[in-house]
Amino acid sequence: MQETNTVKILRFHPEKCIGCLSCEKACSKVHFKTEEGGENSAIHIIKKNETFEMNVCDQRGLCLDMCPVGALARNKKGIVILDVKRCIGCQACVAFCPINAMRKSSKRIEPFKCISCGACVRACPEGALELVETPIKDIRKVVYHKQGA
């Protein structure tokens, strides 16, 4: 499916962030039609001492090789998409994601993730988020498969 060598991923500018979580609210709206944010949002903004950190999928695609039913694939734009209809809710992708960016909400058994749609970018009043075009080869990660440590 993938026809491009680059993919849009989120970049965060913590110095601009005020911690209002507008991005999370916008994200949960996209995924679950709710403004609850939190566990229903694919992007998480976490307060760390005096500053903020972002946790979100960077489209590395390690989960692609975990899915037993082929519910995960890169679309034409290189974005890793979870096909809810095909997913059987095994949580393998959730558990194996090394940055915990594949999410599980209690609203349904199938996980969800960042689709680089930009809703959060648009929602941020401070311009702390942007989508940047990144070469897939720079972010691509493959699940550990060697024998031994």
Binding site: Q91, A92, V94, K104, Q147, G148
Partner: peptide, 20 residues
């Protein structure tokens, strides 16, 4: 399930290498 999937992710390579 997620808890044990993670155990497998982190420890299998040091234990039985079932995944490989």
């Amino acid at each position: 399930g997620t808890k044990i999937h993670r155990e497998i992710r982190d420890l299998d390579r040091f234990q039985c290498n079932m995944r490989s």
